Simulated scan of single mutants.
Amino acid sequence: MPRPVMVGVDASQESRAAAVWAAREAERRGVPLRLLHVWAWSPPGAPGNASRPLLAGRVLREAEAHVRAVCPGVPLVAEQAEGPASRALLGAAGEADVLVLGSRGLSVLTGFVLGSVAQAVVARAACPVVLIRAGHGVDDPQGDDLRHAGPIHAADRDVVLGLDLNDPCDELIDFAFDTARLRNARLRVVSAWSAPSALTLGPGEVGLIDGPRRAEEWRGFQDAVLFTWRDKYPAVSVSGDVVEDRASAALVRAATGAGLLVVGRRTPQEPHVGTRTGPVTHAVSRHARCPVAVVPHC
């Protein structure tokens, strides 16, 4: 049985946006959609215990109705689970193709909230995690998701891949190419580099040449990394960009107007310890103005 696209749902606008995005993704992938609501654990006999499953059922019914308005034909399962939320979502991620979560918007200056539960899930999930915000572009629960939905297989906005040329990862590249293929979208590959200091250079390194030639060397590295992937995905239109800048700044800039930004997250040696995702992934998760997919890799 194919692994589902899973989405964590609650009563928030961000959750509804995430549910719609997840439904469209499930339809693209030809897999079921699984809605999961996690309600907080409390000691036996605590006030409100009896009503929690009833409230969870209401949240799930509302999420299902919202999804059906956009993707009426997607196979759907709605489930509830008792918390802690991060533990329940991480367990669900082990059975999912992709896990989708809503993230709360703040402002252009301060970025976006990635709460403690989402941080833990993004840092430790076994599958790619996609973070969705409400209010910008497609999948807006205020109505844009219905007015601008269009055919599910129509050309979508660009998929942007943040590719570290010092550590290219097959899982990350494959996810980005396959996502672009499913969306019939162009894939834009963005790699950032910075001029090394005299303390970090070794003999014969790229940093020994001048700026323009150094940039050409990095472009050659990127082309070499992408060569076999272009052959594997001949239908995907690919463009590459190598910029001299901090990686987080370059990716946030490239993600403006994109349909999805794809970045990587190294799998920790101890899978049950820590919530760190790395500085670049943390920064783009907060500041990119489009959905962000975080792909685990070794």
Score class of each variant (00 low, 15 high):
H272R: 12
V295K: 04
L35F: 06
L89I: 05
A235C: 10
R276I: 12
H136S: 12
F221I: 08
R34S: 06
R34D: 03
D97E: 15
V159M: 03
L90N: 04
P234N: 01
V284S: 01
G211W: 14
R68C: 07
R29T: 07
L226G: 01
P44E: 10
A118D: 05
I152T: 13
A11K: 11
W41R: 04
H272T: 13
G264V: 00
G259H: 10
P84S: 08
D174P: 04
A81F: 04
P43C: 03
G162R: 03
G202N: 02
A180M: 01
R61P: 07
G257E: 05
R186Y: 01
A40E: 13
A288V: 13
N184E: 12
L226I: 09
D245R: 06
V38F: 08
D158L: 02
S51Y: 10
P72G: 07
A283R: 11
G91C: 05
R157V: 07
R186E: 14
P47A: 03
T277S: 13
E244P: 07
R16N: 08
A258Y: 04
C298P: 13
A235R: 14
G274C: 05
T200W: 04
V280W: 03
L76I: 14
S15Q: 01
G278N: 02
L55H: 12
D144P: 15
V122F: 07
P44T: 08
V236N: 06
V130F: 03
A155E: 14
T179E: 14
N166W: 09
I132H: 00
A78T: 08
G204Q: 00
R24S: 10
A69D: 00
R286G: 15
P203I: 02
